[in-house]
């Protein structure tokens, strides 16, 4: 399996551990990641918030590179670990199906974007999340067969965030109200998944800086609920969710008048642990809330 890969800017900074663990896990599973040469920022929320055309153009530059990369390297699909990048890349392609909109985008690019095409030459590729490709293409049975340290005894709240499956018409992934991909993945790793009811509730996204009160309230509720469901940790698939739940956990706790000690791990880090990868390859030391204590439960019999 060979994939064209777009890491996203946060992978170079705040979500370095996501980036590192994604690469390590893919390597261990025999998935080859072909980096997009000289990729640029998709514009993230600020571009999307500012203007649809600007946002689409910033994505289109990368989709164009992705199309070339796939043609040259033989990669079969285009992937990114970051849901925010995913949404922008997918939305750009979706909206560019409208000729009027596409003309506006092409007008601000150096060269017009290749056609979306049915099965034409260098069609503009669709983008998939790493999570989706691991579960749907690589397959849970394949992953299960490579598990060395089952995560037995670990109770995990799977948190998908709002972007992976919404808006449903564009994202085309799982059940938008009750996704189960990550649940099934974590179960394949041997973990116990708690019936977390807020899987797709928003964490506050990029409001952390300009309107911290919103983020605190929303993230606080997510952590509080995970605690009530007896989760040892929350598993996430999004750098922004991770930042709000991990880095900002104390802020949320203060706002809720509570004390939280809830480790928040990327699902790729948990995969790495189960696959028996080196801790340094997974960036566990980059997490603000230490998972050490929680991870000690692995393999221990849980008393009823």
């Amino acid at each position: 399996m060979k994939l064209a890969y777009y890491p996203g800017c946060s992978g170079m900074g705040t979500s370095a551990e996501y980036e590192r663990s994604t690469r390590a896990v893919c390597k261990a599973l025999g998935i080859e990641l072909q980096d997009l040469p000289d990729w640029s920022c998709c514009g993230s929320t600020p571009a999307h918030a500012t203007d649809a055309v600007l946002s689409a153009a910033l994505s289109a530059r990368n989709l164009t590179i992705a199309a070339k990369t796939m043609a040259q390297s033989g990669a079969t699909k285009f992937t990114t670990p970051c849901p925010s990048c995913l949404l922008n890349l997918k939305t750009a392609r979706h909206h560019m199906a409208e000729p009027e909109f596409r003309a506006k985008v092409d007008a601000i690019l150096d060269e017009p974007c290749p056609p979306i095409g049915q099965k034409g030459e260098e069609p503009l590729p669709d983008t998939y999340s790493v999570l989706q490709l691991l579960v749907e293409d690589y397959g849970l049975e394949n992953i299960k067969s490579k598990v060395k340290t089952p995560l037995k005894g670990l109770k995990i709240a799977p948190y998908y965030g709002c972007l992976l499956s919404r808006p449903p018409k564009i994202m085309q992934f799982d059940d938008p109200e009750n996704p189960t991909s990550m649940d099934r993945l974590l179960e394949a790793l041997g973990a116990e998944v708690v019936p977390f009811p807020l899987k797709t509730e928003c964490c506050g996204a990029s409001m952390g800086i300009p309107r911290r009160d919103i983020t605190e309230r929303l993230s606080g509720r997510l952590i509080e609920t995970a605690v009530r469901y007896g989760a040892d940790m929350i598993a996430v698939a999004c750098p922004l969710c991770h930042m709000n739940l991990d880095l900002r956990q104390e802020q949320a706790a203060r706002a809720k008048n509570a004390v939280f000690d809830m480790p928040v791990l990327y699902f790729t880090q948990l995969m790495g642990i189960a696959l028996g990868l080196k801790e340094s390859d997974l960036g566990l030391n980059k997490l603000c809330v230490s998972p050490t204590q929680a991870l000690q439960k692995i393999g221990k019999e849980v008393s009823a």
Binding site: C9, M12, G13, T14, S15, A16, E17, D38, W39, S40, C41, D51, V53, L54, A57, L58, R61, A107, I108, L109, D110, L247, E250, N285, K286, L287, C288
Partner: peptide, 29 residues
């Protein structure tokens, strides 16, 4: 104090070769 010790945030930006192309997108916009 929470994030700095994690040494995740680089102190210089990643500048890409195609930065001018990206700049032109903004300029035309």
């Amino acid at each position: 104090p929470r994030i700095m010790p994690k040494r995740k945030l680089p102190f210089v930006p990643h500048v890409i070769r195609g930065k001018a192309a990206v700049g032109r997108i903004f300029k035309r916009f």
